[in-house]
């Protein structure tokens, strides 16, 4: 079973090369952006000296951590955005392409069940693609920090203190991992829906997937004058129950207007227990399970000829 899953997931990488090409492309863009910014900043020699002096002597470690965390977050959102688009296209294509190129009967001639195949695609969408993206985020951070260290050193700054001493790497990376995996689970009813559409539609899965998401709220609004469906579906795009509410009073220590040490940790803002005890999380998992089962049944029972 596990060996089959490994083989099936490996197969997804061969077929959908965008799973790793997209993160590599984003990593390259972010790195080029860093290089451009550093080159641009190098043009302001005087201001730079002041800034480096200030960062080394005036700012506390906590402020430096906040600044670097800010950089991490701003570079990570690009990955998360690309990840979301990639996952939509991947899951819509995953059970459609094999029917379009008629290879489905070849795959089904091998001793694997339809459930194993469909589950491998679900795992790819919910776990593998996010983990690959976090891997790319980590690699991007490391490369960018190394570039920034070299640059700071050439400008007379202390890279050890300014960058490596101030950077909450593990905290940031773990937080990124938790957030992308939680997002995968939170958004899993959509992924289940996309897999189901991908398994049954005869043409244009993208249109077939999004049309009901637009039409149903519209019809519900016109005829029932309610918006239950829209709230249930689009409400998921709102705040995921993984984030603690940010208490700004706590964030800044009022006396000194300095950043509260404990509050800079990204992980400190995440609440896994809250996430897994939220009714919304489990409702999503159940809907995803039902839709995935639907996809398995369609693949198993539909006659392709």
């Amino acid at each position: 079973m596990i060996q089959h899953q490994i083989a099936l997931i490996k197969r997804e990488f061969w077929e959908h090369r965008s799973i790793y090409i997209t993160p590599i492309a984003i990593a390259s863009i972010v790195t080029l952006g860093t290089l451009a910014a550093l080159m641009f900043a190098s043009g302001f020699a005087k201001e730079l000296d002041v800034a480096i002096f200030g960062a080394q002597n005036l700012a506390g470690e906590a402020e430096r951590r906040v600044a670097l965390t800010g950089f991490f977050l701003s570079s990570s959102w690009l990955f998360l955005f690309a990840l979301a688009i990639l996952t939509v296209f991947y899951s819509l294509d995953s059970l459609y392409a094999e029917r379009k190129d008629k290879s489905i009967l070849f795959w089904r001639s091998l001793p694997i069940t339809d459930a194993e195949t469909v589950i491998s695609k679900l795992i790819t969408a919910i776990v593998v693609i996010p983990v690959v993206a976090v891997g790319a985020i980590i690699a991007t951070h490391l490369v960018n920090l190394i570039i920034a260290s070299i640059w700071v050193a050439t400008k007379g700054g202390d890279a050890g203190l300014l960058i490596w001493g101030s950077v909450p790497l593990i905290d940031n990376w773990l937080a990124a991992l938790v957030v992308v995996l939680a997002t995968g689970i939170w958004m899993s009813p959509f992924i289940g829906w996309f897999l189901f559409v991908s398994a049954f539609t005869k043409r244009s899965p993208l249109l077939m997937a999004f049309m009901p998401l637009v039409l149903i709220p519209l019809l519900e609004g016109i005829f029932l004058r309610s918006s239950v469906f829209a709230e249930a579906v689009f409400g998921r795009g709102g705040v995921m129950p993984i984030f603690r509410e940010l208490d700004l009073e706590q964030f800044f220590n009022e006396d000194h207007m300095r950043v509260n040490e404990e509050m800079i940790s990204l992980l400190a803002h995440l609440d896994i227990v809250k996430f897994f005890t939220s009714g919304g999380t489990w409702a999503g998992i159940i809907v995803c399970g039902l839709l995935t089962t639907g996809a398995i049944y369609v693949r198993r029972f539909r006659d392709e000829s």
Partner: peptide, 25 residues
């Protein structure tokens, strides 16, 4: 089975195909 309608996927490499069948069969 080999069926006229059960075609090999066009995107796969010969070596990948052998890897996959080896792990599955």
């Amino acid at each position: 089975f080999i069926a006229d309608v059960a075609v090999l996927p066009r995107w796969i490499k010969v070596s990948q195909l052998l890897d996959f069948v080896e792990q599955i069969h």
